[in-house]
Write a protein that binds this DNA or RNA. Structure first.
Lengths: 217, 217
DNA sequence: TCAATATTGTACTATTTGGTACAAAATAAG
DNA sequence: CTTATTTTGTACCAAATAGTACAATATTGA
């Protein structure tokens, strides 16, 4: 089964198409691609795209150069491309399902934001994987930046869906249209992920979030 | 004459203390330090901290290694430190004076934000010098990141001053305290500088800004 | 067992990088 | 002119970096 978004005419697959791991001849891989990808994500997220060297990545992934350049001929760029896809799969899909099925999608979004300031937040001080990419990656990697912005727009579309459902259910006072609210929310997302790096005080961050979330009361 | 902010017990000088360029013995410099610094700012802003190599910087500054490491013993880090100071001097000081003296400081801030979306904006797509630094610089350069966040707080304090004056002059409907509004505005600043990299449509950006600026109506 | 195939590890290379050392050059003061 | 001082340009260096080549290895299927 395929799951995907169509966004601006581009198809963005969110869930891996199940590959029947057909038994094939040849030496078997010693590593699991998804597990290795998760490690790469961790390194990229912690160090940033540019600061993460091929060496850092290979060590974390636990594979050698031979395996790496076989699996990712495009090197670091291709790895990052796949790592972004992985982050979307692991983080957005779940959120999107929740938005589509929960009782109160507006409250879900509120909790999504308010959960950021807690110390146990999985995102921590690392910021948004895609927002970081937009700021860290050089202009010469325009393709990667474009992908990152497309994925951010996927998040925006999830916000929009939540607002749409919230409106249908009468859970939103705001007169503003869902796309406008979604644009407000993605900007809040982008902002808070930078602001939290300058403002350590989590009470003040929470205050700031509550003030912003007043628009979706 | 000195100009400085005191922020969290740290003194941040904004204007260079006039140095009586006393004639001293020795071969004279072939370059102007501030001009070279401006070129370094340009490179850092365009390429990002990590992507800017010493070579890129030296070429842009028009000086050789000998001169560079004499003037900036700390290498790239020290150069960036001084470049941040320069950006503050050139951008914040003027804004702060305007806030302190203009008729309508609230309108000034509105224009400050709305001016961002125009194609002729000096900032363009490069984002905020300090926000970029917070996202681009690795954890191992904690000192630089701290400085960047302090400078962002200077901007926040300018917003606060504007709100304070606006309130005194009866130009603000909002009941919110100036520090709260300032925190809202610095987060908007951080957000919009990322969002504009994913949202090219300047009309939508303007809409987004206007919606956000409603809080200081 | 053997052929075909896919993966791995290592050795190697070329380039970039950040930085040092130091002699030559240009100035002021005596 | 000489000395002290400061800046400059170049040559050099060691480490990091990205990437290639290829033989060895481990598997499937005939």
């Amino acid at each position: 089964m395929k799951k995907y978004f169509v966004l601006n005419g581009t198809i963005l697959y969110l869930c891996r198409v199940e590959q029947n791991k057909q038994e094939m001849a040849g030496r078997p891989k010693t590593y699991d691609e998804d597990t290795a990808l998760d490690e790469a994500v961790r390194v990229f997220w912690e160090k940033g795209y540019t600061n993460a060297s091929a060496d850092d990545l290979l060590k974390a992934m636990g594979i050698g150069k031979g395996s790496f350049y076989l699996a990712f001929r495009g090197g670091k760029q291709e790895l990052f491309e796949k790592s972004m896809k992985r982050v979307v799969e692991q983080n957005f899909t779940e959120l999107r399902n929740a938005v589509a099925t929960c009782e109160d999608p507006v409250q879900l979004i509120r909790d999504f934001f308010l959960g950021l300031t807690g110390t146990q937040s999985p995102i921590g001080n690392k910021g948004c994987y895609f927002g970081n990419a937009l700021v860290q990656i050089s202009e010469s990697d325009a393709g990667l930046k474009l992908l990152a912005s497309q994925y951010l727009k996927v998040l925006e579309s999830i916000f929009e869906e939540a607002m749409q459902r919230g409106k249908e259910k009468g859970l939103l006072k705001s007169e503003l249209a869902p796309p406008v609210l979604a644009s407000y929310l993605i900007n809040l997302w982008n902002g808070i992920n930078v602001t939290r790096r300058m403002e350590q005080n989590s009470d003040r961050l929470t205050e700031l979030l509550k003030l912003n979330l007043a628009v979706i009361e």
